[in-house]
Amino acid sequence: MKTKKFGLFLLAFLLVLATTGCGSKNAQTTGGSKSSGEASSAGNGNDSKKLRDVQVVLDWTPNTNHTGLYVAKEKGYYAAEGLNVEIVQPGSGGADAMVASGKVPFGVSVQENVTQARTQGVPLVSIAAIIQHNTSGFAAPVDRNIKTPKDFEGKTYGGWGSPVEKAIIGSIMENDKADVNKVKFVNMGEADYFTAVKRDIDFAWIFYGWTGIEAELRKQPLDMLYVKDFSDKLDYYTPVLVTNEKQIKEDPELVKSFMRATSKGYQFAIQHPEDAANILIKAVPELDKDLVMASQKWLSPRYQDDAPRWGEQKEEVWKGYSDWMYEHKLLDKPLDVSSAYTNDFLP
């Protein structure tokens, strides 16, 4: 079965990385951080105290999903906790493999990956929801006339080849009495959304807070169908911050201190989106300034949204999505939800 092979491949891949240490050597530093071992002191009362070097690996290139990390570094929140945090981009193994293997203690992931990994014995644990509700969905240029899932029929979808994509598209099309087999699926490879839709793609899965905002700035209006609008089970956490079980067991104080500072970073970004955007632009100057600013203003109120505190995760969200994955044969067994996430390290 294709989905079973996908799960077994993920497990084997992560476990090989865990034993060989592949991936971390190819990590790229971002944001002007000092390399491991360089840090000796910093401000905020830590001038005479050696800081502990810690890495956090991103899931992709830097963007406004990650702003709180850069704020916590720039504002000295990590230094105040005795940490010199280096923000790195994933190597060839990917962020999940680097964290699961213990090569990096913290990383950015998504609930989909953690769910799949946990049911295959990979010890990732989500420690915070970066965004409280799912801001992703299927986007199409307005001239493709895709207003409902029924309109996917006869169109070409550009994706990355995951079984989850067809399952979700099929699920929401089924609710609209439409046939997913009438959709052509194409792997976009390295092409971005804007390049793909100028070629042979009609619609793709995007995060509105980045690609959707970029479309606004380009004056290229979209029809956007948010995944969460079609089922409560699809309003899952994406992205999340993760660590691994060994890190929690052997050094919970590091997890607590990292999360205290990170929470302050995201809280600052919630309250001061323009200042936070400028911090991200300063750290990663190659980013488009207008896009970062517009994206940050859109995303900042959505970090916490209706949750009692930033990062809070709910059992029903984890159970709902994992049940949905199991029902659609994307998991070999149900998820033990209690082991997949924790709120214990949120301040």
Rank of each mutant, 00 (worst) to 15 (best):
H133R: 15
S35V: 11
F152C: 01
S162K: 14
M173D: 02
V125N: 06
M173K: 04
C22S: 12
A139F: 09
V114L: 09
E174S: 12
Y237N: 04
N113G: 00
T20G: 08
A42T: 02
G209R: 02
A18I: 03
T135M: 14
L225V: 09
G7Q: 12
D143M: 11
G320W: 01
K319F: 04
F6W: 15
Y208Q: 03
A283L: 05
A167Y: 06
P252K: 11
G265M: 06
A97T: 06
G32W: 00
H133I: 04
G121N: 07
W160F: 11
W324Y: 12
L335A: 01
F13V: 03
F106R: 01
M293D: 01
R260K: 14
Q89I: 05
G311M: 02
D305N: 13
G154T: 04
E190F: 07
D59G: 15
F194S: 05
F207Q: 12
G209S: 15
R302F: 06
V54T: 07
A95T: 08
L254K: 08
P347G: 03
Y226H: 08
V284G: 00
T156A: 13
S322C: 11
A129G: 10
T19H: 14
A340T: 03
L51R: 09
K264D: 10
E74S: 15
F203Y: 13
I279R: 10
N113S: 07
E153F: 05
Q132E: 14
L69W: 07
D306K: 11
E38W: 11
T30D: 00
T195P: 06
A95C: 10
A139T: 10
S338Q: 10
G137Y: 00
D176A: 15
F230D: 04
G93M: 08
G23M: 04
G82Q: 05
S231K: 05
S231M: 05
V227Q: 14
A12H: 14
K150E: 07
Y226A: 11
E216W: 04
Y208G: 00
K5T: 13
G82D: 03
A178K: 03
F13R: 10
K297V: 14
